[in-house]
Design a binder for these strands. Structure first.
Length: 422
RNA sequence: GGAGAGGUGGCCGAGCGGCUGAAGGCAACGGUUUGCUAAACCGUCGUACGGGUAUACACCCGUACCGGGGGUUCGAAUCCCCCCCUCUCCGCCA
C-alpha cells in the first residue's frame, strides 16, 4: 500500500511512476475523497471536543435540572456526530479500498519496459547443457522411469495435479531437505513451518487481496485461503508488530506446498510439472531496515543462486522491467534455469524487494531506539527454490544416453546414497 | 460440537457509568549515588489521525483506541447485543 500522505502531495510523480508499470488509476478521485475525509474529521472532532467538555460539566453538576438544556443540546450534537462518523467511516473505507488496489511504485533502479521483452539479462552461470543424443522432456523421462504419474494425478484430483512415486517422491523430498539445510546452516535463515491456510488479513497484508482473489483457492465453510506461496504466512509472522532495531535483519525460510488456481493460463504448460495447482517451494523471507534493503536483495539473490550452483544446473538472472514486476514488488530478479528438453530458460526463483509496501499493508514496524518513532520495515522474499521445477531441471539436465538420470552429488546423501535413477 | 471462565499499555495486573489514556508492579531508557558488580533514589516511559506553530520531523492543541463491530446514555474500559480469539472440562479425532 502506498502512503496516503505521500500520494496526496505527489499525485503527478506517483501517476508517472505507476504508468511505467502500465497502471493508470484515477488519482483525482483519491484527492477528492481525501479532502472530504479531512473536512468530515474536522467537523466531527470539533463537535466531540465540545461534547466532552459539556459532558464533564454535566457530570460535576449535582442538580441535573440546572443543566437540562445542555443535556438536550448534547443529544442533538451526539446525533450529528453519529451522522458524521458514519459518513467518515464510509469515506475512509473507500479511501482504503482504493489504496489497496494501487500497485507498488517501481524501484528507481528497476529497468523501464512494458513486457517481458524488456527484461534485462544481468548474468549467466554455466552453459546450456549439451548432449550427444536428443534430450527428452521431463514428462517423458518421468513416465519412463516410473517416478511421475500424470494420468493418476488427474484421476485423483484433476488437471495440473501429479502423483510422484518412488525415487521421484524421494528426490522431491531430498531437494526440500537439501535447500532447507543450506539456508539454515549456511545462509543464516530460521526454519519455520507455517500454516498452509491463512485468513483474509494475511492475504491482504502481502498484496494477494483484494485484487487477486480469483487466483486463490478458498474454503467454503470458513473464510480461509490456501497459500499461493510461503511468502504469505511468513511475512505475516510480524503483522501488527513493532520490532526493535536490534532484531533486524530477520531471515526466515519455510518449505510449504503452494496452491494456485492458475486462472487465465489455460492451455499454457499443460504438460509436465511446470505449471501445477499444487507445487512445493522453499521460500526465503527477510525483514530489514530500509537503508539495507537493496544490499539484502543482492544477498537474497545469491542465496538462491547458490542452490543451483551446488546442483550444477545452468541458469541466468534477469532483472524484471517495470512492466513485468508483480503487484507488490518494487524490484525483482528472476532466476531462470536451463531446460534442455524445451531448449529454454524457465523461471525457478523470483527474488523481490517490496520496500515498505507490504509493511504498510501488514503494519510491520520497528523502532530504532527506545522511545523512538516506529518506522516501517522493508520486506523481501525469494524462492530458494521452486522444488518441482528444480526436479524438472535435474531430470532434463542430468539425463544420460541410456535413459537414466544422474543424481547431483550434493543430493546423494539425501537419497540414501542413490547415484542415479533408472 | 456442548458447558463454563476470560481477553486492559512491551509484560503482569487494578478498575466495572463521569475525578481513567487508564492505579500498582516488572522490564526498558536517562540521571544521581556507591571503589567494580548488585542495590537504592529521581525522572522518562503507547499508537494513530487531524489541526497549529513551523520546518526541526520538535513542540502545542484536539480526537480516537482497554480483542473487533454495533447499541444504550449528556457521558462507556465499565451496561446490552453480535462476532473473533484464549483457557478449563466433556465429546470427537491424527
Amino acid at each position: 500500500m502506498l502512503d496516503g500522505k505521500y500520494l496526496r502531495d505527489n499525485l503527478e510523480t506517483v501517476s508517472q511512476s505507476l504508468a511505467t508499470r502500465g497502471a493508470t488509476p484515477d488519482l483525482t478521485a483519491f484527492n477528492g475523497l481525501d479532502q472530504r475525509r479531512r473536512d468530515l474529521l474536522n467537523e466531527a472532532e470539533t463537535l466531540k471536543a465540545e461534547r466532552n467538555t459539556v459532558s464533564a460539566l454535566i457530570g460535576k453538576t449535582k442538580d441535573k435540572s440546572q443543566v437540562q438544556g445542555e443535556i438536550v443540546r448534547m443529544k442533538e450534537v451526539s446525533n450529528r456526530i453519529k451522522e458524521l462518523d458514519e459518513e467518515l467511516r464510509s469515506v475512509e473505507g473507500d479511501l482504503r479500498d482504493f489504496l489497496l488496489t494501487l500497485p507498488n511504485l517501481p524501484h528507481a533502479a528497476c529497468p523501464l519496459g512494458t513486457s517481458e521483452e524488456d527484461n534485462v539479462e544481468v548474468s549467466t552461470w554455466g552453459a546450456p547443457t549439451t548432449f550427444e543424443f536428443k534430450p527428452l522432456n521431463h514428462w517423458d523421462l518421468g513416465e519412463r522411469l516410473d517416478i511421475l504419474d500424470f494420468e493418476r494425478g488427474v484421476k485423483i484430483a484433476g488437471a495440473r495435479f501429479t502423483l510422484y512415486k518412488g525415487l521421484g517422491a524421494r528426490l522431491e523430498r531430498a531437494l526440500i531437505n537439501f535447500m532447507l539445510d543450506l539456508h539454515t546452516d549456511h545462509h543464516g535463515y530460521l526454519e519455520t513451518l507455517p500454516p498452509f491456510l491463512v485468513n483474509r488479513e494475511s492475504m491482504t497484508g502481502t498484496g494477494q487481496l483484494p485484487k487477486f482473489e480469483d487466483d486463490l483457492f478458498h474454503t467454503d465453510d470458513v473464510d480461509f485461503f490456501l497459500i499461493p506461496t510461503a511468502e504469505v504466512p511468513v511475512t505475516n509472522i510480524h503483522r501488527d508488530e513493532i520490532l526493535t532495531e536490534s532484531e533486524l535483519p530477520l531471515y526466515y525460510t519455510a518449505y510449504t506446498p503452494c496452491f494456485r488456481k492458475e486462472a487465465g493460463s489455460h492451455g499454457r504448460d499443460t504438460r509436465g510439472l511446470i505449471r501445477q495447482h499444487q507445487f512445493n517451494k522453499v521460500e526465503l523471507v527477510k525483514f530489514v531496515r530500509p537503508e539495507e534493503s537493496d544490499a539484502e536483495l543482492q544477498k537474497l539473490l545469491k542465496n538462491a543462486e547458490t542452490v543451483l550452483q551446488l546442483l550444477n544446473l545452468p541458469y541466468r538472472v534477469v532483472d524484471l522491467c517495470s512492466g513485468d514486476i508483480g503487484f507488490s514488488a518494487a524490484r525483482t530478479f528472476d532466476i531462470e534455469v536451463w531446460l534442455p528438453g524445451q531448449q529454454v530458460y524457465r523461471e525457478i526463483s523470483s527474488c523481490s524487494t517490496f520496500g515498505d509496501f507490504q509493511a504498510r499493508r501488514a503494519n510491520i514496524r520497528f523502532r530504532r531506539e527506545a522511545g523512538g518513532k516506529p518506522e516501517f520495515v522493508h520486506t523481501l522474499n525469494g524462492s530458494g527454490l521452486a522444488v518441482g521445477r528444480t526436479l524438472v531441471a535435474i531430470l532434463e539436465n542430468c539425463q544420460q544416453a541410456d535413459g537414466s538420470v544422474l543424481i547431483p552429488e550434493v543430493l546423494r546423501p539425501y537419497l540414501g546414497g542413490v547415484e542415479k535413477i533408472g
